[in-house]
Write a protein that binds this DNA or RNA. Sequence first.
DNA 1: GCTTGACCCTCACGTGGCGTGAGGCGCCAC
DNA 2: GTGGCGCCTCACGCCACGTGAGGGTCAAGC
Lengths: 254, 254
Amino acid sequence: MTTFTVGQVAELLGVTVRTLHHYDEIGLLCPSERSAAGYRLYTEGDLTRLQQVVVYRRLEMPLDEIAALLGDGADAAAHLRRQRTAVMTRLGELNELVTAIDRALEREMSEKPATREQMRELFGDGFKDEYQHEAKQRWGDTEAWKQSQARTNRYTKADWEQIKAQQDAVNAQFVAALRSGEPATGEAAMAAAERARQQIHDHFYDLDHDFHRKLGDMYVADPRFAKTYDDLEAGLAQYVRDAIHANADRHAGP
Amino acid sequence: MTTFTVGQVAELLGVTVRTLHHYDEIGLLCPSERSAAGYRLYTEGDLTRLQQVVVYRRLEMPLDEIAALLGDGADAAAHLRRQRTAVMTRLGELNELVTAIDRALEREMSEKPATREQMRELFGDGFKDEYQHEAKQRWGDTEAWKQSQARTNRYTKADWEQIKAQQDAVNAQFVAALRSGEPATGEAAMAAAERARQQIHDHFYDLDHDFHRKLGDMYVADPRFAKTYDDLEAGLAQYVRDAIHANADRHAGP
DNA sequence: GCTTGACCCTCACGTGGCGTGAGGCGCCAC
DNA sequence: GTGGCGCCTCACGCCACGTGAGGGTCAAGC
């Protein structure tokens, strides 16, 4: 059986030797073997366990909770899925931070000083009070964590109303453009398309103009999407799709 | 001049009172004023500075570095720009982590033990360039797409009805699986996921399992999608998303 | 067979960024 | 005038290691 020394393991998984010593000390990851001279020898199994630890650690989870999670009999795949949703959550938080910074930048550019309310909205409440509380609940209580996969939805739900309001605003913009008789390649329609893209980009996932085309196509191709648009106004799905393409064309410059 | 006490500032910016005390102690952010009784009084200017500190802190930057940055005479906008790129970098790292986890999941599902090289690639320091390459391939390829645009535009109303019927059938399959209590990783759910993928692939655009994952994520992330699913059955969006991932995992060949 | 140098061991204290009281004063309302 | 909340200043505690000190181990080369 092949085993690894501390140095090898450290380089392999990108941690320090001291960290491995520490994990051994606190019993989080004790090497299964020792050489005659007392050298720590890590087996393949130890490595897989350490792998999990490393990922959880990157999510800033305290070591005792990691120990609890790794000890509760879940298999590796379950851990990976849990980790994945956790990372996605963090991604969402960082995305919020980006939009907050962007808004602050806009303010700065227009030389308007921030009001207290804006500040609170951007950097205060949404993050610490609520988030901190929920995060504590989520990471602290290991039982509750098992439900949290399903709850990932509900986590953002507070924000969803705001997001939905923004989306509705954009849709109204599209409807107005369509009703005014302006072509989908017109300025107003393209502006709405760009705004729609930005919103998805900010709230959901990275979205460049090329991929936005695909979404646009889907809006007419996929009946579920087409319906929600055409219910707002007849022919809106196609109109939105064309506006998105026009907007993408305009941004596809040199 | 309006000033704020520690408690007010703390609540406003989402930090603890102790943190403010600490920042005062180390000289990172000393309130410009003190009341007769020795109360810390923060001015508007103090708040803007603290705002910068908070953002930098969220990026896990050590306090002394923050002090250095804030002292080098750059204006607020410059800091914000710096912060923005820092956050984007972090976003990139987390994205790498997600793909690393995904690959680990694929391995886990196909029950292939990881080789040392894979491990190093995934969790060590070597995954920087690899990922970028893959990301480019995944999102950058727009050529295959242009066919599908032409394809969808040519569909007749009869075609649409047929397509919609097929989709409804798949959705019914999902609902049945969910109601039967079968997990999203079960055979029936995965079969439905694969059928759904095939349908999109046939009718709309080339869709591999990897990209299908993205769609699955969207089904829960995007309220419009989530609603159409959850209206069919509570929790269906998440269920479909999980089934898609499970199906993609199973199809992740060597 | 002996040195050399990289690697390993076990203490053990140091550090960053606060958390968490303890003990006491200030302020406003009832 | 007293109760309760908020503020103050020490000052010790904590986590996840960093950073030596002092000393054994191991493969390579002379």
